[in-house]
Design a protein around this nucleic acid. Structure first.
Lengths: 153, 153
DNA sequence: CTCGTTGCAAAGGATTTGCACAAGT
DNA sequence: ACTTGTGCAAATCCTTTGCAACGAG
């Protein structure tokens, strides 16, 4: 059901507005981020390598990193840190809250309004604005919890 | 207000219970974690190096890493990921929620009950148990927000 | 004395950076 | 043509690992 690769103002416009150039690499990286849901820079680079096949040339890893940073500045993608390790990127517009199981690594997306109450309290108490898109809650999913219970009855 | 460096069953007991040994390095690392509030492994190693002075010997960095992992298994410390980069450790017992400013990096500790509502909803809806100790909310603190407003009036 | 631990040094994975060349506009 | 962007390779940062010497019990 992934039908809108690039929502809102497209890549080309935003680049031109800043005097930057539209390159195939940038289009490819953006497309990959939109297609893969919670992809790390490595995963994205890997996919582009696969798509290119043994002959075609895929963007270099360093270009993927630079491009992701750029796309984020342009507001076209967002990244989140799920516990340790690599950050994951997703296309802008799909702003949601991530919940990650620390045991099995499963990532679930949930309604971001879940944190509205907490966010309001932080804003009122500390003047702190929570960026829901970058938040990842960690914990234990149902499966892992049951599995743990089975091992030590 | 930080008066209980090592809460509950002390290091020595927990180590002996597992046939492990109490070493000065382990005591030093635990003390450093308790003293520094949100320290990265590097920061901890650095502090121990400073305390040792130019002559005395401080635990090696690899020992600090191994020890932090051990202390966490023993339930004496916990770690949290604040956005990208190194994880931060804090003594167990001071279970709190971390709020990190993505702009200036400032870390504030807040009452963990802030997320109780969201946690309950996740437990009910998904059977997911949130580990509040490992959660770090990112966003923008008051100072950075005001500063941003000043730059582009 | 015996076996868990440490220090050192080297290996690794994930990013990032410097630069000359390639490529948008 | 004029600059921005890319590929490549080397440099970093953070962490982990192999191993022989060390020291706690």
């Amino acid at each position: 059901m992934r039908s809108d690769p690039v929502p809102g103002p497209p890549l080309a416009e935003r680049l031109r507005a800043r005097g930057m150039r539209l390159t195939p690499q940038r289009q490819q990286v953006l497309a990959a981020v939109a297609a893969l849901e919670h992809a790390t820079p490595e995963t994205i680079a890997g996919r582009l390598r696969d798509q290119a096949g043994p002959d075609g040339a895929a963007p270099d890893t360093s270009t993927v990193y630079r491009t992701l940073e750029l796309l984020e500045r342009l507001g076209l993608v967002w990244h989140t840190h799920l516990g340790k390790g690599a950050p994951v990127y997703h296309a802008a517009g799909q702003r949601h809250l991530h919940v990650a199981c620390a045991t099995c690594g499963a990532v679930t997306s949930v309604d971001p309004t879940l944190l509205d109450g907490a966010a309001e309290r932080l804003a009122a108490d500390l003047g702190f604005t929570v960026d829901v898109g970058h938040v990842a809650l960690s914990g234990t999913c149902r499966d892992c919890r049951e599995r743990a219970g089975t091992e030590t009855p």
